[in-house]
């Protein structure tokens, strides 16, 4: 062994060192990218919203604004657009109130285990519809659910449905009653509205055309 010049390619030491270097480099790159991403996905402020500064994840007070999802030609996919102010449960929410509401909503979404039936931002289980843009779903937007639940606004209809889901069945597969209180329901709706304002790089695709396409029915059988 010692006489011959062994090839470096069969040297355990060489591969051990290479493995360490590659792993180290990948880790450092990941950490660096994480710092960059953290900056881009931290929540914006109320002032950003008032001044029309676009943030990937807007402040909780985004619940005070109208949210739309429209095609952006330059980016080649749909993006959320934050529009004029609109009341949410009949009022404007201060920065503190909105933050507290979102906090309660996010906590409730975890406490009620939403993610093990639904997907949020596309992650979770596949037993129930994706909730990423649920706030913008034509079901709520066009007033059908408001009529069924006997409420005047989209947010009130959503809250009513969340509190008594099996009273308003839409399919054989129903949402179970999760003992959601009035406060929790309001907070959950705020959480959903906030989530719909997140810039998800165009996911779910074609969502803004959902209503139009449903009218045509599907070609699949």
């Amino acid at each position: 062994m010692s006489k011959k010049n062994a090839s470096v390619w069969t040297s355990i030491r060489f591969w051990r060192r290479s493995a360490a270097w590659v792993t180290g480099t990948a880790t450092v790159l990941l950490i660096w990218l994480t710092f960059n991403t953290m900056g881009q996905i931290s929540m914006g402020s109320d002032a950003d919203l008032a001044n029309g500064v676009k943030k990937r994840i807007p402040a909780p007070t985004v619940i005070n604004y109208h949210i739309d999802y429209v095609m952006d030609q330059k980016r080649g996919h749909e993006v959320p657009v934050i529009g004029q102010k609109e009341p949410f449960f009949g009022k404007q929410w201060s920065a503190e109130e909105a933050a507290a509401l979102l906090h309660h909503g996010k906590l409730t979404s975890q406490a009620k285990n939403c993610m093990n039936c639904h997907t949020l931002l596309g992650n979770g289980a596949y037993y129930a519809p994706d909730l990423t843009k649920a706030w913008l779903d034509p079901r709520w937007e066009d007033g059908t659910m408001a009529a069924i639940t006997g409420k005047n606004s989209k947010e009130e209809a959503m809250a009513e449905f969340l509190m008594h889901p099996s009273q308003y069945p839409t399919h054989a597969r129903m949402m179970p009653n999760l003992n959601i209180t009035q406060d929790e329901a309001v907070a959950l709706v705020a959480f959903l509205k906030h989530m719909s304002s997140i810039d998800t790089n165009g996911f779910p695709r074609n969502f803004s055309q959902n209503a139009k396409r449903l009218e045509g029915g599907t070609n699949a059988h």
Binding site: P204, N206, N210, R213, A220
Partner: peptide, 24 residues
């Protein structure tokens, strides 16, 4: 089937989801 019907064809959402779930 879900990709074709719910996503590519109908564009996602509550009704698109259930349309896809109920197909044979």
């Amino acid at each position: 089937e879900q990709v074709l019907v719910e996503r590519a064809d109908l564009g996602g959402g509550w009704d698109a989801y259930f349309t896809a779930q109920n197909l044979p």
